[in-house]
Design a binder for these strands. Structure first.
Length: 645
RNA sequence: GCCGGUGUAGCUCAGUUGGCCAGAGCAGCUGAUUUGUAAUCAGCUGGUCGGCGGUUCGAAUCCGUCCACCGGCUCCA
């Protein structure tokens, strides 16, 4: 007998050799029907795994990532079998579960392609196999046996994967006709999978290396119930409605023109109004925190960026230098504001008493992004950073860094961004080529960030090799409507540029010292931030931000004069008010303005004109009753105050 | 940049296997209506079918090429 301990701390004895699924069945039938995989002493295992010693056990169901993971990983194998049946000789790369579904990287036989038209038959085949209730049978083999198996199958990618594995036993999983190299865990059999959808195909370089062969990546998703697939597809449709590119067009916030150039956003009046409010909001916060605005030009001499190191790092893959016709000088469109700000720091001698110096600028920068990478407002070639550089003494670094975290958190709180993650990006110590500066300075910078993040109680994930070339950073990431992660706020510690620009200050001992720099942008870029804001709010911006706060709707054009008067009064109360004088029925005007997501509709007709009142309707909510203009203005201003507290 | 897909009016989309002047709804304009909380009616305007080249008696439709956009990969100071 062995003792099995459950998550609630209770334990029970079972016969040695019992399988996870059998334990579940003894506990309850409903558990047995829902459980997908198990955790044994913290390791994820198959439900069919036999237990032979005292262990702790956790049952993973659909709602657990581990359960979903096993489900989708098994589904990837199922899809692989379906694909192989249509494309004999297909070679397989990797096929993992991902956040929403799974994919498999495959190499199609010479001359063959997969396209949308083939999705249906692949799905059908998957379900056909699934209904066969084939076991996902695990066998442990030696490395040599595994190599022989995949060499015989001419699956050279699998052979490469196995070759790179450590010696020892290797697990294979087989369902029906398909055998795959896999660590597991998997479902007991294919019958768990009741619905399947092939979502898209894409090219993906083998092992993420663009110098190697590009395989075909097939994305799919499956569910234990048909209904869940339908719900997921509805969810996808809903998400598409929140897409900032769609809403941005509908609400006339921004546009693009092929004639101007791809990835170069054009801000329309309403979008510009929105962005300006955000900028004013941040300027106010920054003023409180002791930042000083500076302004620098859009280009700088190439030498400036040679000094900073940006040219060596990005020069050849970037927009090419602008040459002057007479002197033959070379200028770069600025890809970063920091070198300009460094020169401002250098414009006069600095004392230790002057520090920290904080220079802020909404600086527009231009970067050559690969054409396939451009994406709405989130990835563009010209954008404005809410940039600032803090030059401080080493002893001030930690406090300054934490103050920046405060600013970012304040902004996120004000704009109701609750679901963000924080990532500490450190250097890859193996890869010296990628970075500039001494190990000593990197150590200092990295520990400064880690300490500050800990002191502020941020739950961070650490990524190695993601640092900027001149220093480590702390990034704030937010997801868009389709679950794609975007970096918004960023805070970076930099010992290197001060050295390259030979920045100095005079200490109290009359000796010269080097300051430390913090690069920071709480929004990140105005373009990307607005994009994510649109997706979060579905275009229903907070009252203080929205381009138009109220629209006056006269019942008929007999009341246009009164409507005009009301609109003027409200504008005088600083409420951004527009007038809808069209000759339409009130229902039509309400509908149109509801769709424009203007927060308040002010309806005026005979009643209101006689009593000098207005009838107020809240977008998405309906009639709120009648008010005087003064009272209405008070309500709006209170609402705004609450939002900005 | 690479793989796959898409491109018809300002927007959303029809347009069978190539075949008469390319269609609809919404938006816009004109007129009628004078309206009470999510679509009043009628008429009109609007398109080099993404660009260029080719095949054909004939191309929105087939082929080539370029451009832009969409989903990924790579990249992201």
């Amino acid at each position: 007998m062995i003792k099995i301990t459950f998550p609630d701390g209770n334990s029970r004895e079972f016969e040695s050799g019992i399988k996870g699924i059998e334990i579940a069945k003894i506990l309850s039938n409903s558990l047995a029907s829902e459980v997908l995989s198990i955790g044994i002493n913290g390791e994820n295992k198959d439900l069919t795994q036999s237990l032979t010693q005292d262990s702790s056990i956790v049952f993973y169901k659909w709602d657990d990532v581990e359960g979903k993971h096993a489900f989708w990983h098994s589904s990837a194998h199922l899809m692989a079998e379906a694909l192989e049946s249509f494309y004999p000789g297909m070679k397989f790369g990797i096929g993992p579960a991902i956040e929403n579904g799974f994919y498999y990287d495959v190499e199609l036989p010479e001359g063959q392609t997969i396209s949308d038209a083939d999705f249906r038959k692949i799905e059908d085949k998957m379900l056909e196999i699934a209904r066969g209730k084939f076991d996902y049978a695990r066998t442990d083999v030696s490395k040599n046996e595994a190599l022989k198996f995949f060499t015989d199958k001419k699956d050279n990618y699998k052979v490469e994967l196995i070759t790179d594995l450590e010696d020892g036993t290797i697990s294979l999983y087989k369902q029906n006709t398909f055998t795959d190299l896999c660590r597991g865990p998997h479902l007991p059999n294919t019958s768990y999978i009741k619905s399947a959808k092939i979502l898209s195909i894409a090219g993906a370089y083998w092992r993420g290396d663009e110098k190697r062969k590009q395989l075909t990546r097939v994305y799919g998703i499956t569910f234990p119930k048909q209904k869940q697939l339908e719900e997921y597809l509805v969810l996808l449709e809903e998400a598409k409605k929140r897409d900032h590119r769609k809403i941005g067009k509908e609400l006339e916030l921004f546009t693009f023109s092929a004639r101007v150039g791809m990835g170069l956003p054009l801000w329309l009046p309403k979008g510009a109004m929105l962005r300006e409010r955000l900028e004013q909001f941040l300027k106010k916060v920054q003023k409180k925190y002791g930042y000083e605005p500076v302004i620098t030009p859009h280009i700088g001499q190439k030498e400036l960026y040679v000094t900073s190191g940006h040219y060596a790092k990005y020069g050849k893959d970037s927009f090419q230098p602008i040459h002057t016709p007479q002197e033959g000088e070379e200028f770069l469109l600025k890809p970063m504001n920091c070198p300009h700000h460094c020169e401002i720091y250098k414009s006069k001698p600095r004392s230790y008493k002057d520090l920290p110096v904080r220079y802020a600028e909404f600086g527009t920068v231009y970067r050559y992004e690969q054409s396939g990478e451009l994406h709405g407002l989130t990835r563009v070639r010209g954008f404005t950073q809410d940039d600032a550089h803090i030059f401080c003494r080493p002893d001030q670094l930690s406090e300054e860094f934490m103050k920046v975290i405060d600013i970012v958190l304040y902004i996120f709180k004000t704009l109701d961004f609750k679901d963000f993650t924080t990532q500490i990006s450190l250097r890859d110590k193996e890869n010296h080529e990628k970075y500039i500066g001494s190990d000593e300075n990197w150590e200092k910078a990295e520990s400064a960030i880690i300490e500050a993040a800990n002191a502020k109680g941020l739950k961070t994930i650490v990524e190695y090799g993601e640092a900027a070339f001149y220093g480590p950073k702390l990034d704030f990431m937010v997801k868009d409507a389709l679950g794609r992660k975007w970096q918004l706020g960023t805070i970076q510690v930099d010992y290197n540029l001060p050295e390259r620009f030979e920045l100095e200050y005079v200490g109290n001992d009359d000796k010269k010292y080097r300051p430390v720099m913090i690069h920071r942008a709480p929004f990140g870029s105005m373009e990307r931030f607005v994009a994510v804001l649109i997706e979060h709010t579905a275009g229903k911006f907070p009252l203080w931000l929205t381009p138009e706060q109220a629209v006056v709707l006269p019942i008929s054009d007999k009341f246009n004069d009164y409507a005009k008067k009301v609109s003027n009064i409200l504008n005088n109360y600083d409420i951004r008010t527009v007038l809808d004088e069209r000759n339409e029925k009130i229902g039509k005007k309400i509908r149109d303005n509801e769709l424009k997501r203007i927060p308040y509709m002010v309806i005026v007709g005979e009643k209101e004109a006689e009593t000098e009142t207005i009838s107020v309707r809240r977008q998405g909510e309906g009639d709120k009753g009648s008010f005087t203009c003064e009272d209405f203005a008070k309500i709006i201003n209170e609402e705004i105050e609450k939002q900005l507290n």
